[in-house]
Structure formats: C-alpha cells, structure tokens
C-alpha cells in the first residue's frame, strides 16, 4: 500500500523543514527582540524605524517576501549569502532570511505586549538603582516580558513551522515541494496529503505542548 513512497526522501524533506524552522526561529527571536527594544526606546529615530519596519513587513504576504529574496535580492542585486555556486544552499539561506524578516515582526509585537504587562515600578526601581536604559531592558523588563509571552510566542513558532512551506516557491527542497512532486507523479492524493499533514502535526504539536508547560512553569508570580 505504501510502495508509492519508494524513491522519495520524505524524511530528508522534513529534515529540511526542521532546519528552516529552527534557523528562522532563532533569527527572528533575535531580530524581533531588537525590534521590540527599538519600539520602546527613548530615541525617536529608533522608535520610528521599529514601527515602520513592523507595519510594513508584517502586512506583506510571505510569498511576496520569499519570492523577492530570490528574484530581487539574488537575481537583481546579486546577494548570494556566501553560497554563489551552490544553488541549493543559496536559496535555502535566502528563504531563511525572508522567514526571519517576516516572523520577527510577530515576535516583536508579542514581546511588546509582554513588555506592557511589566509594571512601571519595575523599571523605575531599576532606574533608581542607577541601571542604564539597556540594562533596565535586558536585565529587568525583557526577562519578565518573555515569561509572560511564551504562549503567544509558541503560536508564532507554530505558524513559522507551517510558513516554511512557502520556501517551496523558490525551490527549496522542503516537505511541501516534495509533496507537490509526489502528488503529480503518484495517484495517491489523499494518502500523500495525509502523510504530510501528519508530519507537520508531529512537528508542531509537541512545540505547543512543551512551550505551554514551560510558560506555566516560568510564569512570574506577583
């Protein structure tokens, strides 16, 4: 019954999906945190940049962003991210770049709502001790903000996992691209779709459960 699977590297494709997800997750967590820092900073220029970036990038369809990294950045501006001769690596890296640019806006906004839950007195007490703005942010406000938004961040991470399928648009050999190929070649539409759907559930379900548990465990008691 499953002999149509022969000759296809389903696990390999999902491994690419996992790699796309993890690299993009780490990148967007870092860039999203920087953006959130900008959006609450006392410097008007940084606030302006953060606000403009988030409001522009999160409103562009991910497909447009991913295609732009390939056709725009790579083909027109010659951006190769250190892999000019290795097509596979180049498009993989471009896809990660696009996913980070997009997902970081959602990380930023989740984090910013978390920052708003930290009582003003926490930052005041930190400033009164003589801590600088960046110390107040990184030592007092962000650690508390992160703990309150683990749930929303889990949502962002799950969405990111599924969004990696858009990388198929620029030919990155992840799960969705293989699925399309298999559906075209084999007469097993339902089975193939089910296998890939389950594959994603296997990836995302534990993410949600683990982070939900972590969120409860790390909650800041007031």
């Amino acid at each position: 019954m499953f002999d149509f699977l022969e000759g296809y590297d389903v696990l390999g494709a999902f491994w690419t999906t996992v790699q796309l997800t993890l690299l993009s997750a780490v990148g967007s967590l870092i860039w999203g945190t920087v953006l959130a820092g900008m959006r609450v900073s006392p410097v008007p220029l940084m606030r302006g940049f953060g606000t403009a970036y988030v409001n522009i990038v999160r409103n562009i369809p991910l497909t447009v962003i991913i295609v732009f990294t390939s056709l725009g950045l790579s083909n027109i501006f010659g951006v190769a991210l250190g892999a000019a001769d290795d097509f596979e690596a180049k498009f993989f890296r471009l896809a990660v770049l696009g996913l980070i640019a997009y997902t970081s806006t959602f990380v930023c906004e989740a984090l910013r709502s978390g920052i708003n839950t930290v009582p003003v007195g926490q930052a005041e007490a930190a400033r009164a001790l003589g801590l600088s703005f960046s110390q107040v942010l990184t030592l007092i406000v962000l650690p508390q903000a992160f703990r309150t938004v683990i749930g929303p961040l889990a949502n962002v991470l799950i969405a990111l996992t599924k969004n990696t399928t858009v990388a198929a648009a620029i030919g990155v050999a992840e799960a969705a691209l293989l699925m399309k190929e298999m559906i075209e070649n084999e007469a097993q539409l339902l089975l193939i779709s089910t296998i890939f759907a389950l594959g994603f559930v296997v990836l995302t379900l534990p993410t949600g459960l683990l982070l939900g548990w972590l969120g409860k465990r790390l909650a800041v008691k007031r």
Partner: peptide, 19 residues
C-alpha cells in the same frame, strides 16, 4: 544613572524585581 546610584529610593509598592 551614576547619580541615581548614590540616591537610594524606597517605593510605596516595594517594586522588588519579581523574577
């Protein structure tokens, strides 16, 4: 910041770092 370090402050709502 340097000057604030020399001025201790105690608040009505304590404001201990919760984490």
């Amino acid at each position: 910041a340097r000057l604030r370090a020399d001025v201790g402050m105690v608040f009505q709502s304590f404001n201990l770092f919760a984490h």
